[in-house]
Design a protein around this nucleic acid. Structure first.
Lengths: 112, 112
DNA sequence: AAATATACCTAATAAAGTTATGTAATAAAT
DNA sequence: ATTTATTACATAACTTTATTAGGTATATTT
């Protein structure tokens, strides 16, 4: 099933949201977390994940620090103050989009 | 407020779904319908809409015929049998994606 | 007469994925 | 003991698919 074309535009929001809820995470951990939460339905490919992290860092929404664990480098990411503001907006956008998409596709489950 | 980057990957599904519910529609009508349903939140740009329609036609999921109304050409689209099968799959995919996204972003409204 | 709405189209550009490849250490399996 | 899988990072080539911008043309409204 691999990664989804529908992911486009939401990957940044997913990353920011995870880092809003978890004080620090490294790339691989983020990918594992997404796989776990979605029971394998959404898999973040490395070619999407790492460039997205770099971009968010370049934009000042994330900051990094490295640690050596088991002789391997881990690059941890933290959300910045600016990132904290952005994530609120992006979540609202995503919420709106999901609602409109559900309207368009008649996906809204009957709220009994 | 213009089209959404999150639209990527869902535009085809939106078009197919509308043409599943309406026996025939023309491009401009589809754009109007989407604007109407989403109260203007999702606007299909022509540069996205027309190429998407052409692609779906080329793939055999849609078929077309033209009519002259008020001395202007209208190109109507109909969903094909193959398109009917595809739309079911695409809707399931979209449903799954929306659910997983809501999980990831904690967007699920409390189902009271 | 000018502006807006209707109705189609495409080309250049940009964004953001996928696919493939590379490096390197540790852990598990044969 | 050696191969394979997992952990962990990264980037380049490619593809898809949208945005932006431009073009044509008729009908309607201001």
């Amino acid at each position: 099933m691999s990664s989804n074309p529908m992911l486009k535009g939401t990957l940044q929001t997913i990353i920011l949201k995870l880092l809003e809820d978890n004080s620090q995470m490294y790339g691989y951990e983020i990918a594992q977390k997404v796989k776990e939460i979605t029971t394998g339905d959404i898999v973040l490919t490395e070619g999407a994940l790492y460039p997205a992290l770099h971009k968010l860092e370049a934009e000042g929404l994330l900051e990094t620090f490295t640690e050596i664990v088991d002789n391997r480098v881990r690059k941890y990411y933290r959300i910045t103050e600016q990132g904290g503001k952005e994530v609120t907006d992006k979540l609202n956008e995503a919420r709106l989009f999901v609602n409109q998409l559900q309207l368009l596709l008649n996906l809204k489950p009957n709220t009994i």
